[in-house]
């Protein structure tokens, strides 16, 4: 079962990347809010705080994962016959993972420049 789901041509991959993105987004926003409520870093230290660093690390990890998945789906799509359902799903998966990666990159960028809790 799991092995079949892990095939890049399975329709699950059309939402897997987006789910990962959503999860990351929740952790990003939730983590920020909780740390700001419990132990906010000083406003004067700008964007150079441990909190920003942690969020950035998380973002980079998710980004790497999504990039690998995009590549996996894309490669799998190439191997399938044009017009086949498998190729459709693999290409769709590659697109969804790719845009998820893009969204992760863009939404993560403000972490570099903005102070966290002001």
């Amino acid at each position: 079962m799991i092995r079949r789901l892990w095939q890049p041509t399975h329709p699950v991959h059309t939402t897997l990347g987006l789910l990962l993105w959503a999860l990351w987004f929740v952790v990003l926003y939730g983590g920020l809010s909780i740390v700001c409520a419990v132990a906010p870093p000083a406003a004067a230290s700008g964007a150079l705080t441990g909190l920003n660093g942690g969020l950035l690390l998380l973002t980079a990890t998710v980004l790497a994962l999504l990039a690998i998945m995009t590549w996996r789906c894309w490669r799998a799509g190439k191997a399938q016959a044009p017009g086949s359902s498998e190729r459709f799903m693999a290409r769709l998966g590659a697109g969804a993972h790719g845009v998820s990666a893009l969204a992760t990159l863009w939404i993560g960028l403000p972490v570099v420049v903005l102070p966290p809790c002001v």
């Binding site: 406003a43 863009w106 403000p110 903005l114 102070p115 002001v118």
Partner: peptide, 23 residues
Amino acid sequence: PIGSITLLLAFGIPAGHRMLPLP
């Protein structure tokens, strides 16, 4: 859209930053 968003953010994030009640 990606190009337009880049432009908007390049302008918007610093503008927002200036309006913060930082010391």
